[in-house]
Write a protein that binds this DNA or RNA. Sequence first.
DNA 1: GTCACAACCTAACATCCTTAGGAAAGCGGT
DNA 2: ACCGCTTTCCTAAGGATGTTAGGTTGTGAC
Lengths: 192, 192
Amino acid sequence: MPRAGLTGDRLAEAAADLADEVGVDGLSLSALARRFGVAVPSLYAHVSSLRDLQVRVALLALEESADLVAAALAGVSGRDALTAVGGVWRTYAREHPGRYAATRLPLDPAAAAASAGPRHADLARASLRDYALSDADETHAVRLLGATFHGYAALDAAGAFSHGAPGAPTSDDTWERVLDGLDTLLRSWETR
Amino acid sequence: MPRAGLTGDRLAEAAADLADEVGVDGLSLSALARRFGVAVPSLYAHVSSLRDLQVRVALLALEESADLVAAALAGVSGRDALTAVGGVWRTYAREHPGRYAATRLPLDPAAAAASAGPRHADLARASLRDYALSDADETHAVRLLGATFHGYAALDAAGAFSHGAPGAPTSDDTWERVLDGLDTLLRSWETR
DNA sequence: GTCACAACCTAACATCCTTAGGAAAGCGGT
DNA sequence: ACCGCTTTCCTAAGGATGTTAGGTTGTGAC
């Protein structure tokens, strides 16, 4: 019988795809084993538990999204930088719901420090350079952006912006308005 | 043998407490049955499935939090109103993590419409009355507040604001700054 | 070619959700 | 006080999952 050629990385990638298809809650070792035509316990040679698999997906998604943010951020600044970073999260959450949800999984401190999380923080900081904020304000701003972008993605994904009144503005409209708002907000923070 | 006296409402309330203790993912019919000293299938007389139980917890939490928001909003306006609404969400998420997480559970359109969700929207709208926004802008603002508050609560709960550098500002500091920012942002939207 | 390691398997168990059907508690009416 | 109906709660059973233990067998290194 030929081997399936499993590795931890291949499993993580397949798990990420699976999570995108069936949701992060639908991600199971059984489904993953089925996808590879393999018995469930075989996975334990490469992954120590379901939780471990979820963490691997989270790390993968954090790396992937950090790369996207870095690329989108090349050569732009000010409001364009906000648009770039926010846009990445918004489309990533829509196109890769499972990966995105994994991104929100709480990691233990060691794993968090070794993840692309800090890189995200650095990128967010870089995107704010144009606003000339103090160190503390930059931290506040990074958190504000994180909260707003992630909250927006979450509510949007939950359909909170679609099942409203018929004449209500679209989510895209609001998105633009939010970016405008953040831009003016941050400008008002500028140290002078 | 005496009866335990179960009802759908009592189950939902106990389930909410349980979710607060062990997390919304730890909420299980088995644990709930154990808590009542009852066999698992007995629950099916009052609840049609695990999913149904989760939905009941979500509805309960939405009602509860809407009451809190309404109370906090009595007699205040402007920045104080923002503080009130945001504060409710922030403390609710911290003190009742399971209930709060249930709040984020996607409901089907019918359930969503019958829930306290619309009341939350109305309350958010009311909290913005002082800013004299156009109808469309009010909708944008409600969404912005929702995204920011929920995103903040989620990141805070995930510990994103605690495992940073040693000298970093506290989450409370950032919270104040965020409220200030939203206030100036909304003021800049005012129709003149 | 053979040897060692890793990949993969079967067997087994615990936990969970769910359905089907039976017993008994409590309430009404007589 | 007794009888019957409804509802509560039970046992029995089945299916899905995660996890561990221990055995085979493919595959590359020598």
